[in-house]
Design a protein around this nucleic acid. Sequence first.
DNA 1: GCGATATACTTGAGCTATCAAGCATCCTAC
DNA 2: GTAGGATGCTTGATAGCTCAAGTATATCGC
Lengths: 147, 147
Amino acid sequence: MAAWVGLLRGHAALTRALNADLVADHGLTLNDYEVLLRLSRAPGGQMRRVDLAEQVLLTASGITRLLDGLQASGYVDKAACSSDARVTYAVLTDAGHEKLRAAADVHVAGIHAKFAERYSDDEMATLAELLSRLDGSEPDGEACKPE
Amino acid sequence: MAAWVGLLRGHAALTRALNADLVADHGLTLNDYEVLLRLSRAPGGQMRRVDLAEQVLLTASGITRLLDGLQASGYVDKAACSSDARVTYAVLTDAGHEKLRAAADVHVAGIHAKFAERYSDDEMATLAELLSRLDGSEPDGEACKPE
DNA sequence: GCGATATACTTGAGCTATCAAGCATCCTAC
DNA sequence: GTAGGATGCTTGATAGCTCAAGTATATCGC
């Protein structure tokens, strides 16, 4: 019970602070950032929108609108899938890469600071392990290999 | 870093599930519930809106609108402060008490289940302790003692 | 007393997310 | 091949929150 309250409050406090920083410094939302990050790690810098949605815990429509924004800013582009005309890939542009790299330093440092000032290394590891159990999803398979 | 990701994902997953249940079963938001709960614990079942906002991590305007809704549903009422005409108290009505009691059983059981299925008692205690450090606020003083 | 500043709250505009519904494409069974 | 259903995505309506600005009351220094 206390754990639940802690989770709610902790998340709200941290999220708000970090998101505010990110928006102020780079005009990116926490979710924007997460999406860019996931894309940058994906092979070819591209992912199906559906998979992206699952990874950042948004609905399909949420991803559509978020990507609309990122596309308008020039950080991602659309690409068709050769083997399945239903799917459109989101692909990271050079500008997107650039933006991500620019934002990453400050952002990661910010996160690190927030945690380091409250926890020892051991505690951090424990916390990470415990939290990881909260969301019971697994990695998804590949559907349509881009050429 | 992993801790941060875990916090994000864990919170999103849990919050979504619990909020959905609560809305489906009782038409209450997680925040609605939290507010009713705080009020029920406050002396006289009433609190200043400002203090309430701070406790549930909302802004002043957020509280105004949330309470508008709860008031429209008849779960809370407004009350003036005799010693400071600027403040209005939010006070829990009988219907609010009732609603809270009705929702609490199911909701608390749901929370418990989510945690119990993933953690031992010890782990839960550890998690609670760690999370509690994330938000650095202290209890607030009394400003205007009702009557 | 009276202006300047602070505090409690409300309101309007905007953002991000959701859900429900719709369209297009793909796949499978007949 | 074609009907029925699943899948990927988009769109319209709506909820919940934030910020910025506004109103009303309190308080402090003169």
